[in-house]
Design a protein around this nucleic acid. Structure first.
Lengths: 221, 221
DNA sequence: TCCTGTGAATGTGTTCACAGCA
DNA sequence: TGCTGTGAACACATTCACAGGA
């Protein structure tokens, strides 16, 4: 019943971590517009967050703004990437080359992104050997070897629900400890593995809550 | 005069709303296993949340557990669906029939789900007229008319970034006020429209943060 | 006894207000 | 002056501890 949560200081709160990529994109936009310096107020406009929130977050990363001026975009972006670990190679394995897997691979392909898909696996024999983005689809039998060889620690599970648990276990056994799971099942894995779930059906269900506003009965627009 | 008036709060906190679909799925699993009654402790096991958390949430919905016993699965699930608005038709429009859109449509197809995709749109003329799940792909020109006709208030944006803002505006103009946006851009829309973003690239970037720490095996630097 | 429901205590994140520096 | 950085106040969410009904 009790979930012990040992928070080693030095670690950012999860909510802040989720915001860092948002800053990264805003910075990239601003840089593309030719800016060199940005204030927390400008970032607020571009992200929809408050300027105080942004200053708090950025101060947590070490605080490298200049009072009275703002943040140097290039420097700030580099710092955020460093904190997130995006300044190194972050190899990702994608399991499942169906429509969702393909969409993810395309999403990732080409962009100057760092978590980069370096291996794709699928159970369907007829897909194996085909290309998907920058990768050739491999069989599940090759998963353990490839994942270990490429030092992959992060993986995306885009397989049907029935296969997800098995795939997750194979990934964990091969050394992956951060999983992004799109299958609509709760994965049971040993402690060090962190699972982040994205469940599109649940997402829609939750959103339904907000589709009932103050619409009086005779809703004639 | 005292009446056992079980009143649902006017507005549930967003965090709680996000958990309701989780309960719904756990309940559905438990029901499939032949259970009739469930305790908050059992739900905790199935969801990974704490039992206190669960009791708080369920009490917020009106509290219909039986002390010393637990919750009646069927009744509880029905209540959650009602709170989320899933006891009525919740028609959804899907814009973009690429890989992501197709994955979403498949995800939704067949399951006894309530936010149901009732219309699909795409710009590509060669796709128009094709089937996707239960729907025939329509042109963007038909969007406004169809959305209004079917009283669609919720929409999924699964188009390239460059088109997303335009699509969002068309949807909003046609009466959609809850959008689920998969395009990697921040949408600017008038106040009443609620946008929920799912950005897969950002998701990966944030997760990269958790791929550091003590290497499981012989790491490098 | 069981397990729910809930006030109280705690913890966590956000906002405020302003000090401090360019 | 302008904008960052930050302690303090606040709001919210979670956990605890136990009261209360089956």
């Amino acid at each position: 019943m009790k979930r012990p949560r040992r928070q080693v200081l030095e670690r950012l709160p999860d909510v802040a971590v989720k915001r860092l990529p948002v800053y990264l994109r805003a910075l990239s936009d601003l840089e593309a517009q030719g800016n060199d310096i940005v204030s927390s107020a400008q970032l607020a406009q571009h992200t929809g967050l408050t300027s105080e929130q942004i200053r708090k977050d950025l101060a947590m990363l070490g605080g490298f703004g200049t009072r009275g001026v703002g943040y140097r975009i290039g420097h700030l972006a580099a710092s955020i990437r460093e904190v997130l670990g995006l300044d190194r190679e972050v190899p990702v394995a994608l399991v499942g080359a169906g429509h969702l897997g393909t969409a993810l691979a395309r999403y990732n392909h080409g962009r100057r992104q760092q978590p980069r898909i370096v291996a794709v696996f699928d159970t369907a024999p007829h897909k194996q050997g085909e290309r998907l983005g920058d990768n050739v689809i491999q069989s599940m039998a090759e998963l353990a070897h490839t994942v270990r060889l490429l030092h992959v620690r992060m993986a995306i599970i885009a397989v049907p629900a029935a296969q997800a648990q098995g795939v997750a276990e194979q990934l964990a056994a091969a050394g992956c400890d951060v999983l992004l799971n799109f299958a609509p099942v709760r994965l049971e894995l040993p402690a060090p593995v962190r699972v982040h779930n994205v469940d599109l059906a649940m997402e829609l269900e939750a959103l339904a809550y907000y589709v009932r506003a103050e619409e009086p009965a005779g809703g004639a627009p």
